[in-house]
Design a binder for these strands. Structure first.
Lengths: 187, 187
DNA sequence: TGACATATTGACTAATCAGTCTATAAATAT
DNA sequence: ATATTTATAGACTGATTAGTCAATATGTCA
């Protein structure tokens, strides 16, 4: 990845989150990135291609951070907690990226081709969940609801600590996890 | 509320949700509403005033739908379930409004004056919650986290049934509530 | 060295935007 | 009935936008 190309993506991430896709001009992006508009269009054919690249890079970054294997030596709860924490730390440490995913995952400017490129990688995560229901460690709730419940917990926890950074500590993060876990555990 | 004024707000709601604030031109709004641009600027001095009016109307509509008093004859769980359901039905039956609130509650175009106009009305809701912690029916979790947990559950449930409308029935809605309730209940 | 490709620049352009203005039409008041 | 205010229309304008283009610089390879 070229240095200028990277700074264009960095500037875009910041400005798209702060002012939206249409609220950010290519001139502003170029200025923020410290390049000329011509350079921007040298690396990206148009604005839409830019946001698609950004979406791919952001999601790749998330996938990299949350990847890791199920550890049979640990309990199911511990395994799921580690995954939950990885998601949350990603959101807390990369607030622009997290907000970008939140805002733009339904954007019409992100093409279906771009989405396909990533969607199926979450399959691993889904199977991971299934393990818990099979072993009757978590409630018999259909998969789609379980996934959305999981994501809702990540969403509310990350946005909570973005809003109240002074509340961020291990105790409160565990508290937030227990809210999530007690919702799906059996008994 | 004038008929044309209302159709301008309706058109704005739809287009702002679908294409964003800057992604929607005043000409498009006027066309969708079936009026001339001059009429739009007769009712709203500028685009920002339009989105602020829209925000107020949308939140007023939400507040109207979720309002109601705590019923001492019913259990705390039942009371909170009814509130939770009111929020969810609002989101399910008014998907544009719900998405609009989600997308624009942090928008810089919604002035702090507009926000103040509504924020304090949620105080009732907060006190409602406190009742549960005082009676030790729900976990001793600090208020801000509890509120964000509540909102996260609404968010994930509404977006879930927007994504999978065929899954919407009483059984699954109750299931989603139990995920939420078991997270905060004691024991 | 010299030839060719790639990188970078910023002035430029056609299209689009928010908002204005003038002209009427409809409603309301005196 | 007449005057005054309010509603509606759409052509128009100055500013801004995404994207182009021609010029120049830098790198690469034989």
């Amino acid at each position: 990845m070229n240095e200028k190309e990277q700074s264009i993506l960095d500037a875009s991430l910041k400005l798209f989150v702060e002012h939206g896709f249409h609220g950010t001009s290519t001139a502003q992006i170029a200025k923020e990135a410290g390049v000329a508009t011509g350079t921007l269009f040298h690396y990206f054919n148009n604005k839409e291609e830019l946001i698609n690249s950004l979406y791919i890079h952001t999601k790749e970054s998330l996938l990299k951070d949350i990847s890791g294997n199920y550890d049979d030596k640990k309990s199911f709860k511990q395994n799921i907690k580690e995954l939950w924490l990885k998601f949350n730390w990603f959101g807390i440490n990369n607030s622009y990226m997290f907000q970008f995913i939140l805002i733009f995952h339904t954007s019409p400017y992100i093409t279906s081709l771009t989405k396909e490129h990533l969607e199926n990688r979450y399959d691993e995560l889904v199977e991971f969940y299934m393990q818990g229901t099979e072993k009757h460690e978590i409630k018999m709730v259909y998969n789609e609801l379980l996934q959305d419940y999981f994501w809702g917990s990540i969403y509310s926890t990350v946005t909570h600590f973005q809003k109240y950074p002074e509340k961020l500590n291990e105790k409160n993060l565990n508290m937030a996890f227990e809210l999530f876990w007690d919702g799906i555990k059996i008994g």
